[in-house]
């Protein structure tokens, strides 16, 4: 009961809904960067929402099935093919023993979620099957997939032909708007710099991965002059090393903001301007390099309202699939 990796794609790893509780040891939560797509892919093939699946970045893998299974691909538009025949996205389809699953070119988004009925049956490590590559922990041997890997599958009971209509998918607008609650070390920059930070259109830099997304093209920040506090370091963007929230926006040397994502480094010595709201974290997962983006300030109350809205949206999708 397994699936064989013929070619791994660019960066494909086993993910689930994450491994909370170990951030104080520097072990991030991880899990599918796009939580909505992760959950829906699993539900389409009859799995629990947090079953282990594959997250493929920019390019799909090629897989060979050793037994019949049901598959669904969600997230970015990376068209799946069975033995070369294109299959719909956001819809479950059947594969037979010996079938090959491959992918066409990415049409939109950045990450696809490939759920297989029964889930990828790698061992639970600290309560999760998520791969934490930096720490060589969990997933398939603690790393991204390689050609020749054989992934064990759990026992599944999925049905082909279940789909989630496009009206339930989240639309990405250009430039994409990332809402954030300003704070943390916001007081380190001048008022004019703060205003410009939100006015500027930034672009996703090539350095964009599960740890964080870097942005460039905006105006370098102007800092409020200070005497460096003991232990912080001399650069105006330095702080005494502190915890980094998921979604926090750090700006080393005041030039290129980095938004930390699911595999965040848990702390460090750079000032942060605030934190991207939980409702917009999935959005970041689907941004390709060079995508224009703007940051928009919101209050905590607005962040909570957006979170509730997102939850209702996901609930509606789950209800649709339950009927």
């Amino acid at each position: 009961m397994a699936v064989k990796v013929i070619s791994p794609g660019l960066s494909t790893s086993v993910q689930d809904l994450g491994r909370p509780g170990y951030y104080h040891l520097g072990i991030p939560e991880g899990g599918g960067m796009d939580r909505f797509a992760t959950t829906i892919a699993n539900l389409l093939v009859g799995n629990e929402p947090g079953a282990a699946l594959l997250e493929a970045t920019f390019m799909g893998p090629e897989l060979e099935f050793e037994q019949p299974a049901v598959v669904a691909v969600t997230g970015g538009d990376l068209p799946p093919k069975v033995n070369g025949v294109e299959q719909p996205g956001w819809e479950s389809f059947a594969v037979k023993a010996g079938d090959k699953l491959s992918f066409g070119y990415l049409k939109s988004g950045a990450r696809a979620y490939i759920a297989i009925s029964g889930g990828i049956d790698v061992p639970l490590v600290l309560g999760s099957r998520t791969t934490y590559v930096l720490g060589a922990l969990g997933g398939f041997e603690g790393r991204v997939l390689k050609a020749g890997d054989v992934l064990p599958l759990g026992k599944g009971s999925g049905k082909a032909g279940r789909s989630l209509p496009a009206s339930y998918h989240r639309q990405v607008t250009a430039p994409v708007e990332l809402r954030m609650v300003p704070g943390l070390y916001w007081h380190r920059i001048t008022e004019a710099a703060g205003k410009r930070f939100f006015e500027d259109t930034w672009k996703v830099a090539p350095e964009a991965d599960r740890i964080g997304y870097r942005f460039r093209g905006g105006t370098p920040l102007e800092f409020v002059p200070r005497e460096p506090p003991f232990g912080a370091g001399s650069d105006p963007s330095n702080i005494v090393d502190a915890c980094y929230p998921y979604g926090s926006v750090q700006v080393p040397s005041g030039t290129e903001p980095i938004v930390l994502h699911r595999d965040a480094v848990s702390g460090g010595g750079y000032m942060m301007l605030g934190v991207v709201i939980s409702a917009d974290m999935d959005l970041i997962a689907q941004l390709q390099p060079h995508t224009p983006a703007r940051f928009a300030p919101v209050t905590l109350e607005q962040a909570l309202a957006a979170r509730a809205e997102r939850r209702v949206h996901q609930q509606k999708a789950e209800d649709y699939l339950a009927t």
């Binding site: 704070g183 232990g231 502190a242 979604g247 934190v275 709201i277 905590l300 979170r307």
Partner: peptide, 19 residues
Amino acid sequence: YNFGGDEHIFGEVSEEMSL
């Protein structure tokens, strides 16, 4: 104290390091 988005509270005891 500061809210770090809608999921974190950040507490800075002091700007400088001390035991």
